[in-house]
Amino acid sequence: MSAWVDHNLHSLRVALKRLTDTPLASLFTVLVIAVALSLPAGLYLLLANVQRLAGGVPTEAEISLFLKTGVGPEQGRKLAAQLATRPEVRSVRFIDRDEALAQLTAAGLGEVAASMPANPLPHTLVVIARDPAPASLERLRETLAALPEVERVNLDTDWARRLAALLELGRDLVALLAILLGLALAAITGNTIRLQIYAQRDEIEVARLIGATDRFIRRPFLYFGAIQGLAGGLAAWLLLALVALLLEDSVARLAASYGTTFRLTGLTGPESAALLGASTLLGLLGAYFAVGYTLRGLDTPR
C-alpha cells in the first residue's frame, strides 16, 4: 500500500517535471486547450446571461380581446371587471374604441382613420395573465375566445416562443461545441503524450527490460495528461474571467442606455468545478488512449 502511494507520488513528480522541463511547449499546449475549452464555456455563459436578461424583462403575456361590434362600452367595462376576478388573470384594461382611434391618430395614422367613414376599431380588453407559461396562456386564450362578447383573441407570445427556441438552439450549439472541442482536447492531449512517449523511449525500453509493468510505465503519462487538462481548464477559466472583466464596462454602458443595470455573471462554483473536472477527465482520457496505443506500437517484435 505504501509502495503504491509512493509510486503514485513519484509518478506525479515525474509528470510535473516533464511538464516543467519544456515550459514553452507546455505553455502552448495549455493555451490551445484553454482556447478550445473557453469557446463552449464562453458560449454557455453568454446564453446564461441572455436567459437571465430575458427573465428580467416582464414577460407578462398580454392577451388582446377584440369585442364584437354590437357590444357597447358599458358592457365592455362590465366584462372587464368580471374577468379581473378570475384567478388566472392579473389585470384587465378596457380600451374604448374612440380612445383607440385617438391613440392611432396620435401615432400619426390620423389621416388613414379620417378617410374611413366610421371608426373601424372595436372596443378592446387587454388581459394580463398571472402565469406566463405558454401552456397556461394557451388555455386562458381558449377560455376567453369562447366568451360570447368576444370577436377575436390575439395572444402575443410569438416573441417569447422565438426567444425560447433561440435559447434552445443555443443550448444545442453549446452541447455540440462542447463535444467537438472536448474531442479536440482529448486529441491534443493524446498527441502530446505520444510525443512524450517517443521522447521517453529509452527509459520505457529499459524499464520494460528490467521488469516494469505496463501500469508502472503508464502512470506518469496519465498524471501528465490529467495535469495538462487541469491546467488547460484553469487557463480557460481565467480567460473567461478576463473576457468578462473586459466586457463589464461596455455591458454596463449598454444597460445604462436602456435605463437598466445589468451585470455579467461568471461561472458559478459548481460550473467552475464542472469545467475543471471535465478538462482533467478529458486530459486523462486522451492520455489513456494515447499511452495504450503508443505502447503497443513500441512492443518489442516477437
Binding site: 509502495a3 503504491w4 509512493d6 509510486h7 513519484h10 524499464a207 528490467i210 521488469g211 509493468t213 508502472f216
Partner: peptide
C-alpha cells in the same frame, strides 16, 4: 529496478 518492484 527497486522502484519498479515497489521498493522505495
Amino acid at each position: 529496478p527497486l522502484h519498479i518492484q515497489g521498493l522505495s
